[in-house]
Design a binder for these strands. Structure first.
Lengths: 215, 215
DNA sequence: CGTGGGCTTGATAGTCCTCAAGTCGGGTGG
DNA sequence: CCACCCGACTTGAGGACTATCAAGCCCACG
């Protein structure tokens, strides 16, 4: 991993800061750069002809943005900043180089891509199989567990900078209905979102609503 | 690619035949084998706690099954045969070997995985953004274009061995509603499914219904 | 203090689901 | 060869869930 570090450093560019709600990558861009999120959240989405957009995944600090573009050549989705965002810029050639001379690094990148694909599979399953309550419960759990896997997170104060409209676009619902459903979850003492913080009051109940399957 | 072939052949096992509607891989299996579809169709799906399943992707001849398991270690979804199926068996170590000594092969496998992920992104977008007509139109187009990209396909007789229930499970609808919507598409002269064959009568209309975006 | 964006809430309508019964075709056993 | 049977497909009526549209609220911000 010594030479890996050298490779990464050689192809690491400057960093970039962005306010919230800005374009990081636009659909169709050719994949010449990769980003690594230093701080802040982003999300990737597709827009779909009829003016509606579908959020495919949320991207948290530490994650790589634009891997698909580096492998396939072009990106089929866009990426926006969700919060203020700070990213470091990598040269996309790092992927080709990794495959050529750093198999372990290439393997790790592939694993990252596979994990990302896995999350999309889960989201698709949630949308296809659950009603509004189940979908929201699923997303809450997913976001919570992703963060808890890295840091120590208080279930009653888990960072959750996702707006109603983002939830709606991610879960195939409308903002109005997201709101109603959120109210129900709060009234029933399951979970609530306040001031960009998620409070999980009844984890087992939330898990049950989300389909029981702990990813 | 000479040595690639050697590697592939060295790790290619027997082949396997399966009737329709059988388990090829079960969720949770450790990824020690890969399959390459010689003939027939399969689909991969997740089941979701409440007894419902979500089909994530259809797998056509020539495609690889179980890549994710080979990269991540375990599989988070199951794979069933849709029609009678004939597959050849590969040793999953081929993936590790490819990364270690055949960068081009590894790259190609990664591209395959990325294309698969891309299809899931599209399906998720269709389910999140379209109503029943749009979703069905999307799936018809997707399946047609995947086949037309490989073989010469008659738009009026495109192989489509997908049952109502499969459509329902893939598109987040019920079999009954799939049927009604299929009737509407047929009556309006857009497309119809008969005897496992898809007939596209009005391609531009179908494309429009599917969101206009030609993948 | 005005403004704008996000949040809330209500009434209405539409899409889609549920449940159930009935049809059709192909395969099986007598 | 025919009766039977089963799975897949159809179709209908009623109801549940969610979208739509619109209005009002609230806070942060200029």
């Amino acid at each position: 991993t010594r030479s890996e570090e050298q490779l990464v450093e050689a192809l690491t560019g400057r960093s970039l800061s962005l306010p919230s709600n800005r374009v990081l990558i636009d659909k169709g861009e050719v994949g010449v750069v990769l980003y690594r999120i230093v701080s802040g959240w982003a999300y990737r989405y597709r827009s779909s002809g009829n003016g509606c957009r579908q959020i495919l995944d949320f991207l948290l600090p530490g994650e790589i943005v634009g891997l698909q573009a580096a492998v396939l050549g072009v990106l089929d989705h866009s990426v926006h900043s969700l919060t203020a965002l700070h990213v470091s810029i990598l040269d996309a050639r790092i992927v080709g180089e990794a495959f050529r001379s750093e198999p372990n690094l290439a393997m790790r990148l592939s694993r990252h891509a596979a994990a990302e694909a896995c999350r999309v599979d889960e989201l698709l399953t949630a949308i296809g199989c659950f009603d509004a309550v189940g979908r929201i419960a699923f997303l809450m759990l997913s976001v919570y567990e992703r963060q808890a896997g890295r840091d120590e997170i208080d279930p009653l104060a888990c960072p959750f900078p996702v707006r109603r409209q983002h939830l709606a676009d991610a879960l195939g619902l409308t903002g109005a209905h997201i709101n109603r459903t959120l109210n129900r979850l709060r009234e029933e003492g399951v979970a609530s979102i306040n001031n960009q913080l998620l409070s999980i009051r009844d984890l087992s109940r939330l898990t049950e609503l989300a389909g029981g399957a702990a990813p």
